[in-house]
Design a protein around this nucleic acid. Structure first.
Lengths: 217, 217
DNA sequence: ACCGAAACGGAGGCACCCTCCGTTTCTGCT
DNA sequence: AGCAGAAACGGAGGGTGCCTCCGTTTCGGT
């Protein structure tokens, strides 16, 4: 299984290219048959290469995931943890804003080789950023990586709603969230944070809902 | 068009009841045919009563909208604007958390008599709350109703992800947002707020995306 | 009791999802 | 070169859903 046959490799590439276009045009629920059509292959071929819509999407956005990982690494290295966090969030959200179909692809599941693995690198890095931020007195004490995940997820509808209307307004939302993460603003949390296994399950649930919307009878 | 024929009224009621169940079970993209089936009527009848999925959904959640309007009125009347705002948000989000299919039904469009109208009452009330909160020094000066809308929208993925896992975690997200809305925390906004016509268009876009996901070719 | 209007319901056309399997295309080996 | 089997292809087919259209049934006023 090392080398794909030449035709297979060609088709795979066509599918990814077509997928990129079609997802960009029609959003993340675009028709797979149209992707196959546009790639000039049969639907069966699409399914052989990518057993699920997600597998294709992940492959397509593979490099975006790398970009996010890189941004998280930068943030984790930054001298000033707060600045690192802000830059990271701006970077990621800007990426999402300009590439909406990316939404929801940051989380678990998936086929593309190593995509899930790479994604798994992100949380620990953020963990580190948060820890340092707290140590530096730049972040409220009760902030966790779970809160950051919620914050990131929360942008999806904001971006979707405003993309065509006011493509920068998400920055206002971010500003408010960031201000709320500072220690000066902090008011005690009354609920336990999302972490570990449950955080993962929440992420899964989000993905689950995201694709394959309609539950079986 | 005053009185519905008796059979029509009966069917309408069955449809609403079935819709309530099915939406609760399968989420907002539940099959309309199943709703018709379960109501014991033909699909044609469903479509005559409710020309779109939204029309049905709005009708079903009509009373929820009333509840939200009432909460907004209470907030607008509250002596302490900040407390009023907090209570309002908690109330609305709790309502959503326990009734996920409600998501996205707060906005424009729709058929149910007066639903859209009632919804339109909400923004001005919140406007008033914000104004008073600012005057009382309880809210950051640059906060607008547009920001509040973004904030409300932003909970959708949070609720979806955590509903089955940690049904109270949304309160952490809310806490952070609220802390970020206080004047002590405020850091200058660099982007113009969403307002007026554009706010409406953003709300429409959200709804648009929400149902009828797949754009026409 | 009658009759026109109102309401019904489901067949039908279209699109999509995903599986399955007969057919075609590659490629390593002789 | 040529061949054989593995690998890959592609699309028909069965299932489901959306929505429209129109022949049929039911209601309710006179």
């Amino acid at each position: 299984m090392t080398h794909l046959r030449r035709d297979a490799a060609r088709n795979r590439a066509s599918l990814i290219a077509a997928g990129r276009d079609v997802f960009a045009e029609h959003g993340p629920d675009a028709s797979l048959e149209e992707i196959a059509r546009r790639a000039g292959v049969g639907i069966g071929t699409l399914y052989r290469h990518f057993p699920s819509r997600e597998a294709l999407a992940e492959e397509i956005f593979s490099e975006h995931i790398d970009e996010v990982v890189a941004a998280a690494e930068t943030a984790a290295r930054a001298e000033d943890a707060w600045a690192g966090l802000v830059t990271f969030l701006e970077h990621v959200l800007d990426l999402q804003a300009r590439n909406l179909p990316l939404r929801g692809l940051f989380l678990r599941h998936g086929a593309g080789r190593g995509v899930a693995e790479r994604r798994r690198l992100i949380a620990p890095l953020l963990e580190r950023v948060i820890e340092r931020g707290r140590a530096q007195g730049a972040l409220r004490d009760d902030l966790t990586v779970g809160d950051l995940s919620l914050a990131l997820w929360s942008f999806a509808p904001v971006l979707e709603a405003t993309a065509g209307v006011a493509p920068n307004v998400w920055r206002r939302h971010l500003r408010i969230l960031l201000d709320g993460m500072r220690p000066q603003a902090a008011t005690p949390q009354e609920v336990a944070p999302l972490a570990g296994r449950r955080l993962e399950r929440a992420a899964d649930a989000l993905r689950e809902r995201y694709h394959r919307r309609r539950a079986a009878a």
